[in-house]
Nucleic acid binder design. Structure first.
Lengths: 354, 354
DNA sequence: TTGTACGCGTTATCAG
DNA sequence: CTGATAACGCGTACAA
């Protein structure tokens, strides 16, 4: 029962005693077709439940109507929202997304890129760890004519686009908010930067820190020294809680914490609580990303810097899929400004300066 | 630069002065090709960086090498792991998955099903809310010859497969564990069942409860009455915490809680803590699903019934994609046994029976 | 406005 | 073992 051929435009043409060409034209509103003829065609198409053959279209048009989406997993930053929105925008243009998951493994990233190329997707949206092997592969594909958009990673390859968030502004907004609430001693908790960790987190971490410094400078406040804690966690091995427990048992000379990302914020939050302190009474906390960890579970709800996922998704798709017959925009980078989402993890302090 | 035609088997054939047919055979290890000729072909293919044209293959073979995956979101139960594993198994067979996200909206479910059909995927794996409109659409596709696997939902349509978890066994394992730890008054917290909520959760909830009763019966313990709390939350509107706060302010005549799923467990956990109680000292808690909420964030780590995602993914894919030239297995249902993951949310109690 | 004929890249079939 | 040919379903010059 599954073997009977699906109906084609030829079938429609035959039952109506007309040519397949007219059917093709009618079905796509292309070329000239008589009004009544088109009507008959549409009716017949519906009657026999005609479905265009995707492969034939793709072959004929040299276009797969597919774009690849390569992501590390589903819980880092707000990636679930991004995927959902990307899927939405892509499908709105009658494209499909084919998915690859890499677990932050460079090897998998390369494998996925190759897989997408084989499947002849028309473009690839990729969030990678940013190691040079992956970048090389992206460059290779790009030179073969593949359009690539790097998600939230700056990639310096001609013809490769990026959709970025203004990290410095994120750091700035978080810090300014804390300063305005009266905090002066704000601890920055971020990943330790090692040779092996040459990925984008290092750059981003520095950028966010620059933003922090700018906020202090702008308010003419001198930022105290030694208020950075480098967490030795990695993407693969997350142990912020333990590291920070150790730290807080010896240092409590801060009133607020700005966490590099939500995973760190989560670990910090747990460490703080396990020491009998609470948020925001004892320490205020600002996270970064607004991942589901934070926005669906954290207690109390954590104030965060949010990367606007709708805009990111929309831009990424716009860079890959053209709207009508318009030309695609040339490859370029888009920088999107993050915003501060105030929740309940930041308290005002009146005077706490010694 | 992106416009130069990709090389084809004809290009290879021409530069080698042979026929395209031989190239095709050589590239696929199909049919008979001389050893040295094959070698030359492979070398030339590599040289010009030949990539098979997916659309042409699909058209010729009447097979898109694509399967559709329709899911509600990325954080319900262990869906992120499921997607990752499904993607893994699918790609191992050189298939791709194309993704649809529904947000538990019946309307979106139907739209996605139609989209997948248009894209001519060879099979669809779908996790739906289970409303009849969706079921009808699945049936329609199925009658058109589409293979469909329902993920974690029983669907009574001939030719549609299901991969299910033994819910009764889940309830049984959770309860048995609690009983063995000395608990007798175990509160079951589950969703309220309304007319509008005719989806699968109702069935599953009952099945898990039957498993619970069986555990009591098997140990010859009479289960106390009135130990079920119906949470009025829905998939769209999750408010377990508030509901349960209200409940616990008036009832504390239980020592342990078995939550229908992790979202409920999460809400219950927060409600308990906000009342000044702690887990497991005051109440023990067992969740269901092992979603990322629980396994990556909860504090303390919550003991759960886990649906073995690797096995589920593997079965789902096996039902859709044949290994070599083997025939696909006929549509049928697979029931997989869940397991108990012991963590830190269950304490022993010695004597607490009044 | 409509029809004819060809090609997109691949593979199955059949002939040599 | 290898080559020629047709066909998969659709879109589009070109002709009518």
């Amino acid at each position: 029962m599954s073997k009977e051929k699906r109906p084609t435009i030829v079938d429609i043409a035959n039952s109506l005693q007309i040519s397949p060409a007219s059917v093709s034209r009618a079905l796509r509103n292309a070329g000239k077709v008589g009004v009544d003829l088109r009507k008959k065609i549409l009716i017949e198409a519906k009657r026999i439940n005609y479905q265009p053959n995707f492969a034939a279209k793709a072959l004929r048009n040299q276009s797969s109507q597919l774009i690849g989406l390569i992501i590390p997993n589903f819980f880092s930053f707000q990636i679930d929202e991004l995927v959902r929105k990307i899927q939405y925008y892509v499908q709105k243009k009658h494209y499909g997304i084919i998915l690859g998951v890499t677990e932050w493994e460079t090897e998998n990233e390369i494998e996925q890129l190759e897989f997408m190329a084989e499947k002849r997707v028309e473009g690839i949206i990729v969030k990678s760890k940013g190691m040079h092997q992956t970048i090389d592969k992206i460059q290779e594909l790009s030179m073969d004519g593949m359009r690539v958009v790097s998600l939230l990673d700056k990639v310096d390859i001609p013809n490769v686009s990026s959709v970025l968030v203004n990290n410095a502004m994120g750091g700035y907004l978080a810090t300014k908010h804390l300063l305005e609430k009266g905090h002066r001693r704000i601890l920055y908790v971020t990943y330790q930067q090692t040779q092996s960790n040459e990925g984008n987190d290092s750059h981003f971490s520095r950028e966010r820190y620059f933003g922090m410094l700018r906020a202090y400078a702008e308010m003419n406040i001198k930022r105290p020294d030694n208020l950075v804690f480098y967490d030795k966690s990695t993407n693969q091995n997350h142990d912020t809680e333990a590291h920070f427990k150790e730290y807080i048992s010896r240092h409590t000379d801060f009133t607020a914490i700005f966490a590099y990302d939500d995973q760190i914020a989560a670990g910090v939050s747990r460490a703080i609580r396990s020491h009998g302190y609470s948020i925001p009474e004892d320490f205020s906390l600002v996270g970064f990303d607004d991942s589901i960890f934070v926005n669906k579970w954290s207690n109390p709800p954590i104030t965060v810097i949010k990367q606007p996922d709708d805009e990111i998704a929309c831009e990424a798709v716009r860079l890959l899929v053209n709207d009508n017959n318009n030309e695609l925009p040339p490859a370029h980078s888009v920088v999107i400004n993050p915003e501060l989402i105030k929740r309940e993890s930041v308290a005002s302090i009146v005077v706490k300066q010694p």
